[in-house]
C-alpha cells in the first residue's frame, strides 16, 4: 500500500498549460500517473499532448472524475486555485508553487479547515508526493525511486527528499511513499499527518523524517513518535551551521532567538527514540541497518 495516492488516483493539473506545468505534468504521465485533465479558463477545449483542458476544476472533475489536483500556477493565483479545487470537491491538493505570501497560506488553510475539513493540502512550496511504481504527482524525479517499500519518507525539503530517495535506491532499499511537505510557514499536510499514515500502512516498516531549522514542527513530530509510533524512525535535521536570524532560503527556515535550532530538534527526536543522523549519507546508512534488522 501507499499513503495519500496510488495507481487509482486521478489528477487534474491547474497550470498544465504553463511551461513548468507541462514539463512536469507530462513527466508525471510518463511515470504512470493518471493525468486526466488540465485547467485554464482561457484555453478550455484545447489539449496538452492529448490531455484535455477545462475552464475550471469543477468542469474537469465532472468530466473526468479527478479526485486530486496538482497546482503549478504562479504564486499570486495560488490562494484562489486552492479554494477553487476545494470547492469543486477535490480531496487532495498538491501545491508545488513557491513564493506564496504567508498571509495567503494562513487564510486558505483556515478556510479549508473550516469549510472543507476532509480536504488536504500538500505544500505550498513542496516537491509533491510519489508512491514509487504507482503514482508521481509533482516534480520528484521518478527514476531515482525504487518501488516496493519498506521505507516511507517525509521531508520539509524538496532536494533533501531526492537525496534520501537516491541514497535508499542506491542501497537497494525500496520506498512505499515519499512526501515532501514543503518549507513554508503554513504547510498543509504536517509531519504528523504523514507519520500517522505510515504507522497505519502495513507495507511501510520504517520511516525517514527530514526536518530543518525554524518553527516547532519537528518537536511536535517527536512527541508523536515517542507516544504513538511503533515503527522505527531515522531522521536528519538540516541547518546545524545556519546562523541565527538569517532566513535560509525557505520562508520557514529561520532560527529566531533560542527557538527553532537544529540542536533542539535533534534532542527532541533522540528523546523520542528516533535515530538521529548527522548528514544524509549517515541517515541512509542508519536506515540500512534498521531495514536489515526488520
Amino acid at each position: 500500500m501507499s499513503i495519500f495516492v496510488d495507481q487509482d488516483t486521478k489528477v487534474v493539473y491547474q497550470g498544465l498549460t504553463g511551461s513548468q506545468g507541462r514539463f512536469h505534468g507530462l513527466r508525471n504521465r510518463d511515470y504512470g500517473t493518471q493525468v486526466v485533465a488540465g485547467t485554464n479558463p482561457k484555453k478550455a477545449g484545447t489539449d496538452v499532448d492529448g490531455i484535455p483542458i477545462y475552464g475550471s476544476v469543477a468542469e474537469a472533475r465532472e468530466a473526468t472524475g479527478a479526485d486530486t489536483s496538482c497546482i503549478f500556477i504562479p504564486a499570486p493565483g495560488v490562494a484562489a486555485a486552492v479554494e477553487e479545487a476545494a470547492e469543486a470537491g477535490i480531496g487532495f491538493i498538491v501545491v508545488i508553487t513557491e513564493g506564496v505570501p504567508a498571509h495567503d497560506e494562513a487564510r486558505f488553510y483556515n478556510r479549508l479547515r473550516r469549510d472543507f475539513p476532509d480536504t488536504l493540502v500538500l505544500g505550498p512550496n513542496c516537491p509533491g508526493v510519489i508512491s514509487p511504481g504507482r503514482c508521481n504527482i509533482g516534480i520528484t524525479p521518478g527514476e531515482i525511486t525504487l518501488p516496493g517499500g519498506p521505507v516511507g519518507i517525509v521531508s520539509r525539503s524538496g532536494t533533501l527528499t531526492y537525496q534520501a530517495l537516491h541514497e535508499m535506491t542506491t542501497k537497494g532499499i525500496g520506498q512505499t511513499t515519499c512526501v515532501g511537505i514543503g518549507g513554508d510557514p503554513v504547510p498543509g499536510v504536517s509531519f504528523i499527518d504523514c507519520l500517522e499514515r505510515f504507522e497505519a500502512d502495513p507495507e511501510t516498516k520504517a520511516v525517514i523524517m527530514i526536518g530543518e531549522i525554524g518553527g516547532s514542527a519537528e518537536e511536535e513530530a517527536a512527541e508523536f513518535i515517542g507516544s504513538k509510533m511503533s515503527k522505527p524512525v531515522v531522521s536528519y535535521i538540516a541547518g546545524v551551521t545556519a546562523p541565527a536570524g538569517k532566513k535560509m532560503g525557505h520562508a520557514g527556515a529561520i532560527v529566531s532567538g533560542s527557538k527553532g535550532t537544529a540542536e533542539a530538534k535533534m534532542e527532541a527526536l533522540r528523546s523520542a527514540g528516533a535515530v538521529v543522523a548527522e548528514n544524509p549519507t549517515a541517515m541512509a546508512e542508519a536506515m540500512a541497518v534498521v531495514v536489515a534488522n526488520l
Binding site: 525539503s157 537525496q163 530543518e212 538540516a238 541547518g239 551551521t241 545556519a242 538569517k246 532560503g249 527556515a253
Partner: peptide, 28 residues
C-alpha cells in the same frame, strides 16, 4: 538548489573540516 540541500551542504562541509563562505540557493 533548494534551501534544505544547501543548508545540508553547509553542514557537511563543516563536518569534513571546512567552512562555508556563503549560502546560495538557486531555487527551483
Amino acid at each position: 538548489n533548494g534551501a534544505g540541500l544547501v543548508m545540508s551542504t553547509l553542514d557537511v562541509v563543516n563536518q569534513v573540516g571546512g567552512s562555508a563562505a556563503n549560502f546560495l540557493d538557486v531555487g527551483g
